[in-house]
Amino acid sequence: MPSIRLKLETEGGMDDNSELLSARGLRKTYGDRVAVHEVSLALRPGEVLGLLGPNGAGKSTTVGMICGLTVPDAGSVTMADGVSLASDEAGYKRRIGLVPQDIALYEDLPARMNVELFGALYGMAPDVLKRRTDEVLALVGLSDRAKDKPATFSGGMKRRLNIACALVHDPEVILLDEPTAGVDPQSRNAIFDNLEALKAAGKALIYTTHYMEEAERLADRITIIDHGRVVASGTQAQLFALLPAAQTLQVDLGGEPDDALLAGLPGVTRSGQRLEVRVADVARDAGALMAALAQRGLQVRGIATARVTLEDVFLQLTGRALRD
């Protein structure tokens, strides 16, 4: 795998724990609809920030404001050395790489020419552009398809080429808006490997996704937005702490119970003959639950434990009703 050159040093140096990018109070309205309201976030070198939310929550609008494609009604986005869209739009955008939700490629141009075209838009010198094109195509595993047109590529290959185009100018911050949408598991794992290599090289990434398992694997910190507002932000451990229970008990019963028999049992949800019960301490609470079920005449056929997941946190904070 090729090395990824870094440009994270500012004049006077940069602490690894310092903020590389800071967004403050971002707001965007469309007519009477508030798409994003006072969203703030920060990003550090070598960090993946997961940006989660239901459909229409404001994720893509937030990404658009950070990369400069969407003009905010209020708020600011600033790099660590003070460079911003307001102070130096061209300089700011050269430090940002965007992998959009919709594939953005020229289908009838060879893969190499796609990458070179994006690099040329940043005014890269020919020799630097050639070297960087070789590096990013190797990173995403497309060196052997460099002369082929994206029209002949699978969906996963197109996604990986889109990532190469976003990386050719060696940005410090990479914004990825659902980069695995519609790809097969093998391509998804290849993209994960690419992103983990970028993180290890010190790049800072913002990653939006609907897949909770992706966020659990990749993200160092997670920001959840709903109805355009930040509803929670922190590490996975900090988000798990927002729930009253850390684990669930899955109890299989001998028959489908009458819901009236489950009344008074806190934290219990039923699906057919299976109960799911959120508990804070399995060792302490399992015995009490078994006794309560026996008292109600319910036969237990099996019991298992499972930890709370990021999906549990997400649904708790945003609601379970489908929104399109």
Rank of each mutant, 00 (worst) to 15 (best):
T180E: 04
K147Q: 14
L161F: 03
M212H: 05
D148L: 14
C165G: 05
L198T: 10
A204R: 06
L195Q: 00
L175I: 15
F192G: 03
L198Y: 05
Q186T: 12
L195M: 10
R188Q: 04
A204F: 07
N189C: 08
E214C: 10
Q186L: 15
P179I: 10
L142S: 02
S187H: 05
T180I: 07
L167Y: 01
E178S: 11
P150W: 04
S154L: 14
C165I: 05
I163R: 04
A138C: 12
G155A: 13
F192W: 15
E213T: 13
L175Q: 01
I191C: 02
L139W: 00
K199P: 02
G182C: 09
D184H: 04
K149V: 15
P185H: 01
D184S: 07
T209E: 07
R145C: 11
T208I: 15
N189T: 08
I191Y: 01
T208R: 08
R145W: 09
A164V: 01
V168M: 01
P185M: 03
S187N: 12
D177K: 11
D148Y: 04
E214Q: 12
F192I: 10
I163D: 02
N162K: 06
L205Q: 08
A204N: 07
Y211Q: 08
E196W: 01
R188P: 01
H210A: 14
Y211S: 11
G141T: 12
D148H: 11
H169Q: 10
P150L: 13
S154W: 12
C165N: 03
R145M: 13
V173G: 00
L142W: 00
T209N: 05
L198D: 05
K203A: 12
F153Y: 10
D144N: 15
